[in-house]
Nucleic acid binder design. Structure first.
Lengths: 120, 120
DNA sequence: ATATTGATTAGAGTTTACTCTAAGTCAAGT
DNA sequence: ACTTGACTTAGAGTAAACTCTAATCAATAT
């Protein structure tokens, strides 16, 4: 059971952000006797998942939606898959955009290098 | 020579955004006799390039930096390559993140589908 | 005993990248 | 002559996602 500081450390995000995620109902940690937040293994792995979604440009609003489906229980499985499948399509689109840009930069950089090389 | 509206149309961005890019010195269009902005082929292809950088998460500040190097002339070629090469590394990192997330979602969705399938 | 450390809260402030508003000019069409 | 539509400006407003502040409290360290 980790404190907010330890959790922030482990995940590489700030305690501020963790409180913000709680305010947005993305993660609901436990509380200890003193009223301090406590994050267990399930919170940590959930947050790691959230961070993966974030890293792949899922907006907070969509993560909130997914989190609320998870809280609602088993019967939302279908809706969850729909949401994740749609995000997966967005990831595929991003992959294509990035691959195209990578190739474009490859060519552009090669062109510049020829230019620089020939001027020395 | 396109007007701001035509340019916006062609590029799929708003005229507002084009004025914003000008304010930020990312693109400096010509002006016609009436004082209206005019974009020629070189502006259009530059903006297409800028949009590619944007789509791959290059911040406006970095695009500004690159644009200023381009305006400074030939002798900044080395600095430009450095900037582009660094962005290329960022694209590679994004590709890895996205690929990992794609696989993770593939597994997660497969798991959910088994769950839903077995409950019907 | 006091000082530091790390936590708490509500709410304000920041950054990025637009996005829009208001007030106005100008050319073309009816 | 009038309306329409596209353009002009400076500057205000917005949305997303944090990020920080101030005041406070509780447990440890010296």
């Amino acid at each position: 059971m980790l404190t907010i500081g330890e959790t922030a450390e482990v995940l590489g995000i700030s305690a501020h952000t963790l409180r913000y995620y709680e305010k947005e109902r993305i993660v609901l940690p436990l509380r200890d006797a003193g009223g301090d937040r406590r994050y267990d293994e399930s919170h940590i792995s959930w947050l790691k998942f959230v961070i993966k979604l974030k890293e792949t440009q899922m907006p907070i609003a969509a993560i909130q939606k997914y989190a609320s489906l998870v809280r609602e229980g088993e019967h939302t499985a279908e809706a969850r898959v729909k949401l994740l499948a749609e995000h997966k399509r967005s990831i595929r689109a991003q992959l294509e955009t990035l691959t195209a840009a990578d190739e474009m930069l490859e060519r552009k950089i090669a062109g510049y290098r020829t230019l620089i090389g020939s001027s020395r």
